[in-house]
Nucleic acid binder design. Structure first.
Lengths: 216, 216
DNA sequence: GATTTATCTATTGTCTACATTCCGTCAAGC
DNA sequence: GCTTGACGGAATGTAGACAATAGATAAATC
């Protein structure tokens, strides 16, 4: 029962991961101000590790940390959503292409399990499972930098799920595309799998962009 | 003559940029230990801003900062070099594709100027000009996240230039490819330009990888 | 009354001191 | 001789105090 490691050298990472989860889940509004002192109080620490964690999140694009001013949760805007998904649409197929020869049946099964659950879940969990599914298939690529990059993009992208009520229509299409992707992977058809993945990302992006605009 | 702003909220960024330049230029060996106190002494500041700057460089992949241990200049290894260039090979053509409609003749002229100088320079300057050339053509794409990503990859990639003596053969080929890229941009042939760019990055990567292996 | 300037408060940036961790060294035990 | 564990120095992690900044509010001037 390690309840309070007085110092582990990783408190900042821990705090960052808590805040990251909150921001991604939409628990914190875009533009919300993050006061160092307030967070220090909450996490029972000094402002120093808080500052570190805010810098980590800044790098991931989840918060904005202006010099000499308070940090804020970064805004959600259509342009940046489009940009993030343009980047995903080239990065994920690249990872998949590299991962494919290393991809085991066992790993595909894991992706199927995730997808099964995603189809039974409501939106809040769906967003997270959607991300897990995408990460599962590309994990074997053994490219740490690429994987971190993609994970970061997925986090950023996931924030937008809460803006647009994901309607039944989109969910169905998304599930179909995931199933098709799985099939292509099982057939070890790299080219087809990558093409499906790219189109899947771009079409989801486009659907949500339209939904965002019609709401705003 | 502002020689010592006691506090500007950006000292860490400044320090990071100095260290970044040193690491990229190869002035600091991979694996070299970076002591906080030593750097604090050098930059006439406390360890605090130093810590921040090391974290910044860590996010860019230029240094490694293990918990509770001293930071070191990140190692150079062929696998990570390949990874970086695989990522460049998809990110840069994407940026170029988006930038092309916005690309002005004036901006192409700037790229030409850079290329002219690169062809007259020795390797130390060449590495920097090579990066500037790549950034120049994609600048108009108006994708801050994508541009930052590419800039970071180019920094990381540039470090490897000093490992392999860039022989005449490669320089010539690189210059030819840059010229072809410029021509495609002037003709506003997006597809061709992107294809040239992708092949250029991958072939340069492959050449240097082989050079690295034969040296090690 | 509008506009500029001064002041005041809330918040961040940095410094110094101390706690903790890491790692090499050395002694003890097998 | 080799391994194990304790010790100590050197380096990092964190806390709390202080300095500097930004933004709002009040005061002064025209």
């Amino acid at each position: 029962m390690k309840q309070k490691p007085t110092r582990d050298g990783e408190t900042a990472e821990h705090i960052a991961s808590v805040l990251r989860a909150e921001i991604i889940a939409g628990d914190r509004e875009p533009g919300e101000v993050l006061y160092q002192e307030e967070l220090a109080d909450r996490f029972q620490t000094s402002r120093m590790p808080i500052r570190d964690s805010l810098k980590i999140l800044e790098r991931e694009g989840l918060v904005v940390v202006p010099a000499n001013k308070s940090a804020t949760v970064s805004p959600l805007d259509p342009a940046s959503f489009v940009e993030i998904n343009e980047m995903r649409a080239v990065a994920e197929p690249l990872a998949l292409k590299i991962a494919m020869p290393e991809l085991t049946n066992r790993q595909i099964d894991r992706a199927i399990t995730i997808q099964d659950e995603a189809e039974r879940s409501d939106i809040a969990v769906f967003a997270a499972l959607n991300r897990d599914f995408h990460m599962a298939l590309i994990q074997p690529c053994e490219r740490p930098r690429l994987l971190a990059h993609i994970a970061s993009l997925n986090d950023a992208s996931q924030r937008y799920f809460h803006l647009t009520a994901v309607d039944l229509d989109y969910s169905t299409q998304s599930h179909d595309e995931h199933r098709a992707l799985i099939a292509a992977c099982m057939a070890r058809n790299t080219e087809k799998a990558c093409a499906i993945l790219e189109r899947h990302i771009l079409s989801a992006s486009e659907k949500m962009r339209i939904a965002m605009l019609s709401k705003a």
